[in-house]
Design a protein around this nucleic acid. Structure first.
Lengths: 353, 353
DNA sequence: GCAGGTGGTTGAATCGTTACATAACCTCCT
DNA sequence: AGGAGGTTATGTAACGATTCAACCACCTGC
């Protein structure tokens, strides 16, 4: 076993032609005459010849791959983005190298070096904060970079993102339409741009409705996971009934699930006693015991568009214009925020009588 | 912008040495004298030289990457496996090319060709059914293959998997210990090896307890997702109370979440009226409104071990022995199957009095 | 004074593929 | 017959890094 792989030379010898002809059969089959072509193809099959991609790349100067660097492959947001990227890339015959920075500078730097050494066509990245300079350098050296889910401050590169301010606005407007008040915002740390934007959107919605931003009960969390959500849920449940919010908008679905779990444990009905809206619309939002309303982002589309922009830049050369594409999120209403204004809860008998 | 990348030759010229010396600085810095070394390093930095990985690979004959082909990157099981693989690979300075077969033969074949052209060190794969011959061929041509989450029938290759029969046994034994009876099994299609094994384990547990396998209420589903679980949950809820199972073992967590959702919607208490045990222990199992008991697989470990076996085969050459590693799953008990034997449910007042 | 090290550096050959300039051979037309 | 034009096939020079035999300069010990 482990035979040395066969090269184009051996194929040529076996078929009684020159290496140039074999190469032509592989890359421009139309320029070689039928009998020769089939003879070569037979030889390829018989010897089990497999193209050597490294040699092709060396010759071509660039590899036929693109790099995708995400903060966390286990996060459904990024896996969906990755699938979008992959779909687009494979249509152009490109492979995707998926890298996981874990939100650590060191890992990100390591992967960027690796991708540059591989001479990828370009890099799609959700950068850890403060990576601007490194990315600019990459670009100067000739590797196109497209930012994913973060906006380029300098306009020196393409980017795709989703309007998180609008997302927060949609969620809170929906709750206000159902007469909820006061409303709580659960999320943090605010150093994460997405979280801050969603909060800003929430405030915008309140102000547009003529309600003071001070009435928003902001509960800051240290992380965006389920247990942080539970903690926030407990904090809300412990508030005196008179001041307790009747609705909660969470900065992501994990927090929302945590809040929901806590409410269920304390037998506080959702949505009867408190409505919940999450963000991201992860698969499990719909699967929760009480299906969760959530703000959906066009994740697959995000990846696809990012890959398109990258390919345009990598292949289009001179004519390329950097673009900042911003998608709009969409509110998906489910049971957890079914309209139940305060009035209906306070006086159910009145309605029944 | 887009300057032509600088080669080792230019570095050599700039530092006033030969290309051989530059290569030595890069690969065996200890053999070159200090003043020369720092001169070369300065030149590298100044010119912004980046190694060309393709050229290295061409020379070396093999790339410094391994391929990982999974059925679905969006599935948390595979993302955790992938992280395990990545951790192990990066310790050896290897990159991972992650490919998504979507359980489709065509995509799998396409990616296998791509990986072979890339001359990867080896391939880790959860194959679609009937891929045996293709994989054997790969191996004959010199690319090591390790099966992930499926056992090699021929012993001609390494494999890592988890004992699904044991997993089913653990789950049902746990339910039997709490006096549950009858018990339902929800899962399908049985053509999936994992599902059939888990059912077999469930039956084994019953028989060991001296209970006829006929008493197991098997509810077959067409898929392993939440909505199939809801359907199964509805079927169970609709059964006459006398014959209705007091516990359900689901072939995976998505089904279990579906069952839980349906029970919640119908106000059937979990675990008071019916206990639920899932399988996989996905992140959202613990996050469910009623935290879900589940059978956990050592996913990260699975990936790590698979990568280790692969590297042993790829680098160890002659001394390598194919091994079939089987891991043991672990039952995680949470609220959804908190012990509530039938007796306790029937006569709560007796206990209280 | 010379054989034998030793430490440092060099230069050319090599990996497999592609692109391109060139050659060989037809066919058809004047 | 001679050339123009077209189709096929060939041979070779890159691409960039690594490896290795050869070489040089200098030292050591006899």
């Amino acid at each position: 076993m482990a035979n040395a792989p066969v090269s184009i030379r051996e194929v040529a010898a076996h078929a009684g032609v020159s290496v140039g002809t074999v190469s032509n059969v592989l890359n421009r089959p139309d320029v070689v005459a039928e009998p020769t072509r089939s003879r070569v193809q037979a030889a390829i099959k018989q010897l089990g010849f497999i193209r050597n991609e490294s040699a092709r790349q060396l010759r071509a100067g660039r590899s036929r791959t693109i790099g995708l660097v995400v903060l966390d492959v286990a996060n459904p947001f990024f896996t969906d983005v990755a699938r979008g990227v992959e779909d687009e890339a494979s249509e152009s015959g490109l492979a995707v190298i998926l890298c996981n920075s874990d939100d650590k500078q060191a890992k990100e730097t390591h992967y960027l070096e690796l991708l540059e050494e591989h001479r990828v066509q370009g890099i799609l990245i959700t950068p850890v904060s403060g990576a601007q300079e490194r990315l600019a350098q990459l670009q100067r050296r000739g590797t196109p970079v497209v930012l994913v889910d973060s906006r380029s401050p300098t306009r020196g590169q393409c980017s795709v993102s989703v309007d998180d301010v609008l997302g927060g606005d949609l969620a809170v407007s929906h709750l206000l339409a159902a007469q909820h008040e006061p409303i709580a915002f659960v999320g943090g740390p605010l150093s994460i741009r997405q979280v801050a934007d969603r909060l800003e959107g929430a405030i915008r919605a309140l102000e547009r409705a003529g309600i003071s931003a001070d009435s928003l009960c902001v509960i800051k969390t240290a992380a965006l996971n389920v247990s942080a959500g539970q903690g926030a849920g407990a904090a809300i449940a412990d508030m005196p009934a008179a001041r307790r919010p009747t609705a909660v908008f969470c900065a992501n679905d994990l927090l929302a699930l945590g809040v929901l779990q806590e409410m269920t444990a304390r037998k506080i009905g959702v949505p009867e006693s408190i409505a919940i809206v999450g963000y991201d619309d992860i698969e499990f939002a719909a699967a929760a015991a009480v299906p969760l309303s959530s703000v959906r982002q066009p994740r697959h589309q995000l990846g696809r568009t990012a890959a398109q922009l990258l390919l345009d830049e990598a292949l289009g050369e001179a004519s390329h214009q950097h673009r900042q594409v911003v998608f709009e999120p969409e509110l998906v209403v489910r049971q957890s925020s079914q309209a139940r204004p305060r009035e209906a809860r306070i006086a159910p008998t009145e309605a029944a009588g």
